[in-house]
């Protein structure tokens, strides 16, 4: 395998949890609700997966439980933001603090206990002889495949279906959507819950694919990177795929440069992902300075029927 293929494989491996969490964030924010709770939701997803997988030994049950728990947290976030019209930034930060604390508490009894098994892989023997493609796709795990399919599904959903049109309408102009007979509150609730579920799965992927055990603070800030990637991807699932893998590749590139015998200090190499992010944002900002940013117009604004803005 050559350097590029190895880097691609590493990028996909490092990028998958980021991709799932970013897609979740996009669903949330397309509906007009800010999602700053990703770190907490990922931790809750990770701890739920560990607890249920260790207790039952059944991965499917563990993933279902993960989705259920994060759905409840998503319901809480949408109840606060949609029904109570609480400040969305505050609710999101609260979710992060709450998730970090609760996951640490719930995880204490199973901390350090190994999971029954790693993430199962989908072997595609017929694909193996194909160069590059075979190396990358013949042995990916199910969650990675799920995230790839999801990118396509969400892209089509948001941009090619009437459901997507409703979603975008709710995120851009809830008053207009309301007039058109779209149920704004219902749509916001559903997408915030769906988004939280995906972020929970991102946490599940981290324990299944990286370190097969629960430890407090396991995500180490990856949730916050996903919050940034939502903006970086300009609320678009296809761009999210690119951004997540790009960030994953940068994560891995530092070590590869160290191993090539570089004289650049490792401290500096560790800054690469963040430095490149700033540069790319500056470049995109400059190139798109006369275009809309892609931000849902009503992001962060609670909708109150008949209130004028």
């Amino acid at each position: 395998m050559d350097f590029t293929t190895q880097l691609l494989i590493a990028a996909i491996s490092a990028g998958t949890p980021l991709l799932l969490a970013t897609l979740g964030g996009i669903l949330n924010e397309r509906a007009g609700i800010i999602q700053l709770g990703a770190e907490g939701l990922m931790l809750m997803g990770a701890v739920t997966t560990c607890i249920v997988y260790i207790r039952t030994g059944n991965l499917a049950v563990a993933l279902l439980a993960t989705v259920a728990v994060t759905a409840v947290l998503g319901l809480l976030h949408s109840f606060l933001c949609v029904t109570l019209r609480a400040n969305q930034t505050m609710s999101g930060l609260a979710m992060t603090l709450f998730g970090s604390g609760l996951s640490a508490y719930l995880g204490k009894p199973i901390s350090g206990i190994p999971l029954p098994g790693p993430s199962p892989k989908l072997h595609l023997g017929w694909l193996e002889p194909v160069p590059v493609i075979g190396n990358i796709f013949a042995n990916m795990d199910y969650l990675t495949w799920f995230s790839l399919v999801l990118v396509l599904v969400l892209h089509l959903l948001i941009h090619r279906t009437s459901w997507g049109l409703h979603l975008r309408a709710v995120g851009d102009s809830p008053a207009t959507a309301d007039v058109m007979g779209i149920r704004v509150q219902l749509i916001r609730y559903s997408y915030v819950i769906a988004g939280a579920m995906l972020i929970g799965l991102a946490g599940a992927d981290m324990v299944l694919a990286y370190a097969p055990t629960w430890n407090e603070g396991l995500t180490a800030g990856r949730g916050w990177i996903a919050v940034g990637l939502v903006i970086f991807a300009r609320w678009n699932p296809l761009r999210a795929l690119f951004c997540a893998y790009f960030f994953g590749a940068l994560d891995s590139l530092g070590f590869r440069i160290q191993l090539l015998g570089s004289v650049v200090p490792s401290y500096f190499l560790k800054m690469i992902p963040y430095l490149v992010t700033i540069l790319v944002l500056m470049y995109l900002g400059y190139r798109n300075r006369n275009k809309p940013s892609g931000t849902p117009e009503a992001l962060g604004v609670p909708y109150i029927r008949e209130q004028r803005f």
Partner: peptide, 24 residues
């Protein structure tokens, strides 16, 4: 071969470091 992760605990980063060593 040695790589420095500059963290005591971060499974994602540690995994990337390990994979780059295995790839070499």
């Amino acid at each position: 071969d040695v790589v420095w992760t500059n963290t005591w605990y971060d499974p994602t980063t540690e995994r990337q470091a390990a994979i780059s060593l295995l790839d070499k």
